[in-house]
């Protein structure tokens, strides 16, 4: 079973703040992590390999700093990692990104299963996974929360839907995107960490892929982010003083004034 897992390096959004003047993310000093859903995709890939044998290859598109995230994947026990990094890839929307990743998967060759996280916590589009499947012309299932069965010919999964789940069977090759409930992510192993420190992460550029240059990067992206803004928060705070009785009285007065009751 040859498995490719696609990951994205994202800012740890628990730390992220927005610059109100420029409406952009303040990236400096913010830790980069593997998109949390993608760590579950890696875990599922490893579990399938443990059962059926084969290989797990993790790929990611992004700037050279993504090497750190790919090394983290190595520390968890994946066989190979590849970084897709080129100025020509920059500015890609979900269509161009999924095209580029799909071309890389074609170049890897003989891939039976592609696993992605359900979405990235920075963009929240959930489009790249299905996009890759469309470019590869393979079936796909999103929001997978359980792997029911997999063999060399097909895969059966449960996908979450509102109020329940669907059980879906697909022929391989196929693509799935997973939610956090699908598994618990393992810790790295010491041998994995040692290997991750030694490994030279291969970098593929646009020249290494058999691609149509009009379909990648900013030029290949029909959608472009025009602006990012944060909602204005209009809250006025008044702190009442006095003893409990007085405070309750003032609170009731204020609520009456606002005609809340």
């Amino acid at each position: 079973m040859n498995i490719v897992v696609c990951i994205k390096q994202v800012p740890d959004t628990t730390d992220v703040k927005i610059d109100r003047n420029t409406n952009t993310l303040i990236r400096s000093g913010v830790k980069s992590i593997i998109n949390p859903y993608d760590t579950h995709a890696i875990e599922l890939g490893l579990q399938i390999r443990e059962k059926l044998g084969g290989k797990v290859v993790v790929i990611s598109m992004g700037p050279p700093q993504v090497i750190d995230s790919l090394k983290e994947a190595v520390s968890m026990g994946v066989d190979d990692v590849i970084l897709l990094s080129d100025r020509a890839f920059a500015g890609a929307d979900t269509l161009a990104t999924s095209y580029t990743l799909a071309e890389a998967i074609k170049s890897i060759g003989n891939v039976d299963l592609v696993i992605c996280g359900k979405q990235a916590i920075d963009g929240d589009t959930a489009q790249v996974g299905p996009g890759i499947a469309e470019h590869l012309n393979t079936p796909h299932t999103t929001y997978v929360n359980e792997l029911c069965n997999i063999n060399s010919a097909n895969i059966t999964v449960k996908r979450m839907i509102e109020g329940g789940y669907e059980k879906v069977e697909m022929d391989l090759p196929a693509l799935i995107t997973v939610v956090k409930e699908v598994n618990e992510v393992r810790f790295p192993s010491i041998r994995g960490i040692l290997r991750s420190r030694e490994i030279d992460v291969p970098i593929w550029t646009s020249k290494d892929l058999n691609i149509d240059f009009t379909k990648i990067g900013l030029d290949g992206s029909p959608t472009q982010v025009v602006s990012v803004s944060t909602p204005q928060i209009n809250t006025q705070t008044e702190i009442f003083t006095g003893n409990a009785k007085e405070q309750v009285h003032k609170l009731l007065e204020a609520l009456n004034e606002q005609k809340i009751f």
């Binding site: 393992r186 010491i190 041998r191």
Partner: peptide
């Protein structure tokens, strides 16, 4: 199980 998978028993 976690310690084993993380190679702690090998140290």
């Amino acid at each position: 199980d976690i310690l084993a998978k993380s190679d702690i028993f090998r140290v």
